[in-house]
Amino acid sequence: MRAPAVSIRGLRKTYRGAPPGAPPAVDGLDLSVAAGSCFGLLGPNGAGKTTTIRILCAASPRDAGEVAVLGVDPALEPRVLKGRIGVVPQLDNLDPDFSVLRNLLVYARYFGIPAPRARERAAELLRFVRLEDRSGDPVEELSGGLRRRLVIARALLHDPELLVLDEPTTGLDPQSRRVLWDRVRELRRGGKTILLTTHYMEEAEALCDRVAIVDRGRVLVDGAPADLVRTHARRSVVELRGESAALASLAAPPDEVDRLEDRTVIYSDDGETLYHKMIQSAPGADAHLRRATLEDVFLRLTGRGLRE
C-alpha cells in the first residue's frame, strides 16, 4: 500500500488576535487521505475546514501537530511542497487584466515551466476544462462557472500529485456543477489525489471515496459516504409533518427519531414497512418516505442550530 497523500495528527491552530477564550480554529484534528483517492472535508461554517486546508497548503503556520503532505512538512519545505500540489481557492483570484490563455502562461512561470512547454500544457488544459474556444477572451467576461474551470486548469499546470479544492462549486448553477464533477472524476481516474471541501452533501456523495465530517476543529466521523449513512442514519427516512398521531399509533416505537419544530424525522432500516404501517393506522397523515442521505448524517452529528 502506498503511503497516504495527506497525514495529519493532533493538528492545533489558534489565530493570532483571536479574542481571549475563543475556541481554537483547529483543535486536535486527525486526518489521513489515501493516495489516489478523492477525499471530502465536510463541516459547518467555522468548523476549521479552510484553516486545515491552508495549513496543509503551506499558507498558514500551525501551533502543534504533525502534518505530512506527499511526505513533506509544509512548515519546513513550503516551496518544495507548493511545487507538487495544485490549489483551487474558495474565491477566484485570476488576473482580471489578462486573457484566459495569458492567465495560464503567466502562472506557469512561478512554477519554472519553460514558455514552450507552458504553451503546450495550457492548450491541453484548456481543452480539458472545455475552454479552448475562449483562450483569447478577457477573464472579466467569463461567467462564474467558466472562471472556476480556468482556476482548475491553472492549478493543474505543473501536473500536481495532489489537487486541493476549497468549495469548488459554491455559487455555480447545476449544469456548471456537473461539468466540474465530471472533470474531478476524470482527474481522479488519472491517478491524482483530490482533497475537497464542500457544503453540498450530494456533491460529497457523488465524488468522494471517503469523507470526514469536521466540527469545532475536530473530526467527528470519517469513512465512505455509504457506510456513514448506514451507521448514522440507517437506510431510509420517513418524514412526518404536523402532529405525530401517526407515530403514536405505532405498536412498537421506531428506533431513532429526531423531533423538529415542524416535523418528525424517523430513521429506520426498514422504512418501507414503517411507512405503510403509519399510513394504514393513520390514513391522511402527511408522511413521506425517502432514502437516507449524507445530509441526514451531517445534520444529526453537527446539529441543526445556525452557526454564524
Partner: peptide, 14 residues
Amino acid sequence: YQRTFDAITATPAS
C-alpha cells in the same frame, strides 16, 4: 481586491 498575492503564494513563490 484581486487576491493576486494569494494566487502567487500558492505556487513555489513566497
